[in-house]
Nucleic acid binder design. Structure first.
Lengths: 341, 341
DNA sequence: GCCTTTTATGGTAGCGCTGTCATTATTCGT
DNA sequence: ACGAATAATGACAGCGCTACCATAAAAGGC
């Protein structure tokens, strides 16, 4: 005697077979209606759709994915969500995926390549159609999986390096370099630098290097820098500036790795009675809304986060197959002159 | 003649059968090693693990989920990621899930119950073990799915209502009420209110109602309010305060629906030469880092976002089955006196 | 030493869906 | 009007894994 069907499942979850039976068609026809694929007579479609509605049928994507060896998932691996940069990227991705069948699945790596590797592998277990990551630097294991998988890969934010497939972003090294040139041209000479302790934020490091290069070219160098013993935050910026100035009161400009910390720097100046720009220039990175809403808008660099996310997702949707050659898309950046440097 | 196996897949993706063959065991034994389930001899486990490593085997979770009628996914549906509140909640969830087999899958609803319903259904297609949503208000269809599904449900942020399963959060109505009481006690009498256009931010509405109730009790009422024709942002707060004051110069305190907008209000005061607190009180909501980093820390209410996320995920992990009775966990809130009201 | 329990392993049958191929009904071109 | 293309539908196997049961060997109890 054959074992009773359906022993493992809750008895009342409808399957495609139930829908097909109710609509009086075969399973495969019902499947075609669900996927809007292949020629279906209008009358048939209607009957199937009403059966779906009546049963509150939800397709089982695990079964679908297994049968078709593919999914409509797009894995997105981001370093952090506390840093507003990445939610902006995500919004871009979402915007591009709305009205498509694709669905983003988000993981957070905490800037740790090993966590990235672990999450990547657990995402690959769901057979995603595409993978989006931040940066070009991954563990060797992750890189191998990215290169060998049957999915397209986009690496965001950074374009200084060798992408797996598609890179969308800007040159952070160049942004750092332009920052230095801009500030030198505006007359600043005595540079300080504030850092945070996220050593794996490769973009921040690249900007730092670019800045140093431009100073070197002008015969200058950083007078001082301080690494805040914690992740980036406004308070980190405030406290770091206080420390920098206590050791080197002669600084005339301080560069921060991002706008959040730069805002903290401005708050320190307000508190200590330092006139921003005249006495001390403050320069950030990202071009956040809040910095531009201040009475004296923050001098910074606008990174085009939303555009990066949107462009990457659109590019990934262009073809189902892995492209034969690598693509690098430079979304560029803009110096916002602002009023603080 | 039987059709060749594996025609649909790329030929070189290893399966559990390949692992088992290489290790010289049966598929089910290899499966047990992968899942760390059931008794396995150490020598066998080692052989299987080394076969897995050699082949770079990645389990196919679609197949696993289909066979076991379950997954280790935890669906998380949040209204927005631009609002820093939700990344904080997410961090809490992540913290609770680290070192467990569970994996969060994040969707963004843009504060739209219909989008929430759509994303919920597409997530349910993956048979999640649990679902986390924001708020207690969902479409009837969504509510029905939540109630009938074979997964646990946590509704976050808000506890003023009837949860499906578990609610974790605070009473926003009470927070609004306490805000009013606090400000009245501090001597403020002429209240203004700034709003944004996200009508479905039920929490903001509940705070608004609580505030009005406390004013009514004290024989007061809002003198004016302005709805900014756009989503919440610092610039929205700045511009809204300008409009409120131009119409009603006699206001002595303005309450904002969140810290971002309140910061914008402070920036307007700085720009317009208004002395915050003496001439005009400013009150926010959330207790963000950046507001507390200002020279005069923002007066606001601390909502415990991280704790909410962490508590909810922990609670969901407690049992595999849907709890027989509803649970409401009040994480509370704290008034931060600050220096702006 | 014999029976029971525990440990370790395997055979088999699906889970729910879709790719492939086949079949029939309809439309079209000339 | 007749073969050829097209539209609409179905039968069936199998995707990769795990639940279920069975079996065999080792360990324990008295």
């Amino acid at each position: 005697m054959p074992r009773k069907r359906n022993t493992r499942r809750s008895p009342d979850v409808p399957t495609l077979a139930d829908v097909a039976r109710l609509a009086g068609v075969s399973e495969i026809t019902a499947s075609r209606v669900v996927r809007a694929q292949g020629p279906i007579a209008d009358s048939t479609r209607l009957r199937v759709l009403s059966a779906i509605a009546e049963l509150s049928y939800i397709p089982n994507r695990a079964a679908g994915s297994l049968a078709s060896a593919g999914s409509t998932l797009m894995s997105v691996l981001l370093p952090s969500l506390s840093n507003i940069v990445f939610p902006d990227v995500l919004r871009g991705i979402h915007t591009a995926l709305t009205q498509t069948a694709f669905q983003p699945v988000i993981g957070v790596t905490d800037y740790d390549p090993l966590i990235e590797e672990r999450i990547l592998i657990s995402f690959l277990a769901w057979q995603p159609a595409a993978v989006i990551l931040a940066g070009l630097h991954h563990t060797p294991v992750a890189r191998r999986h990215l290169e060998q998988g049957r999915f397209r890969v986009a690496e965001l934010m950074d374009i200084d390096g060798d992408p797996v497939d598609i890179a969308v972003g800007m040159s952070h090294r160049q942004a750092g370099y332009e920052t230095g040139r801009h500030l030198i041209q505006r007359g600043y000479r005595r540079f300080g630098y504030a850092r945070h302790n996220i050593l794996t934020d490769d973009r921040a490091s690249a900007r730092y290097e670019g800045l140093c290069a431009s100073l070197r070219e002008a015969g200058l160098s950083l007078i001082t820098e301080h690494v805040y013993p914690g992740p980036s935050s406004t308070i980190a910026g405030r406290d770091t500036l206080a420390i920098l100035l206590s050791g080197h009161p002669g600084l005339d400009v301080v560069i921060f790795p991002n706008d959040d910390m730069a805002m903290g720097g401005i708050f320190h100046c307000m508190h200590a009675g330092i006139t921003v720009r005249e006495q001390l220039g403050i320069f950030g990175f990202n071009g956040l809304d809040i910095g531009q809403a201040m009475p004296m808008p923050l001098s910074t660099i606008l990174s085009k986060r939303f555009l990066i996310g949107k462009t990457a997702a659109e590019k990934l949707l262009e073809s189902r197959e892995r492209p034969p050659e690598k693509t690098i898309i430079n979304t560029g950046f803009e110096i916002i002159e602002g009023a603080t440097a």
